[in-house]
Design a protein around this nucleic acid. Structure first.
Lengths: 99, 99
DNA sequence: GATGAATATAAAAATATTATAATACCTATG
DNA sequence: CATAGGTATTATAATATTTTTATATTCATC
């Protein structure tokens, strides 16, 4: 990677590096959700969710389609789900996390 | 992942989400380096590198062995190198990045 | 066109991150 | 033991992120 790529890659990672945003990715791995479903499932405010979704969309991690008054969110790039496997192992193997 | 795991996972991702720290991981993928080699190769100050290495070590992404007056850095967990493949594709496929 | 449900935006305070500069801390060697 | 090379720490200013609260927008329905 060249400098410029690392800057952008860092922004993408930063977009994932937040408990709620990680939660959104995890939930959406299971399939499409509305904004309301997301903030209920992840137990945060509507405003919070809206702002976090914006960040995820900007990095093209999540995409949104509109249907009437609701918005349906889904993963743009399922490749990054691999990351959760790495992370799971890392938590157990390197940071002392119990199962 | 439960809440607590997402908090920690977010910290690990945050540790990667920085141009220099990404650079360190990339360079170390190729093999061990001293601190001096790292900051010369990545073109930043010694102090900057020392601080960034600390963050990487805290999350057990990098480990350091001492040899006399120098410190040798290496990757603790090569699993995360998969991330670079995903990222490379993501940059090209989703963010309009030329090759 | 008023209402209500779903979502977005703005503002602001609290906190965290980043980057730089200055200084301190080893440790090997003369 | 003074020095110099390699690395760490501290302090600080600038900037960015996080979270909450309040308000705005949009759209379907009555």
């Amino acid at each position: 990677m060249v400098q410029e790529e690392r800057n952008i890659a860092a922004d993408v990672l930063k977009a994932m590096a937040h408990p709620i945003r990680l939660g959104v990715i995890e939930v959406l791995a299971d399939g499409e959700r509305t904004v309301t479903e997301l903030y209920e499932e992840l137990d945060c405010s509507q405003s919070m969710m809206s702002q976090q979704l914006k960040i995820l969309c900007q990095q093209k991690l999540v995409s949104i389609r509109k249907d009437g008054t609701q918005k349906y969110c889904s993963l743009s790039n399922r490749d990054f789900l691999k990351l959760f496997d790495c992370m799971h192992l890392h938590l157990r193997k390197f940071l002392n996390f119990r199962d």
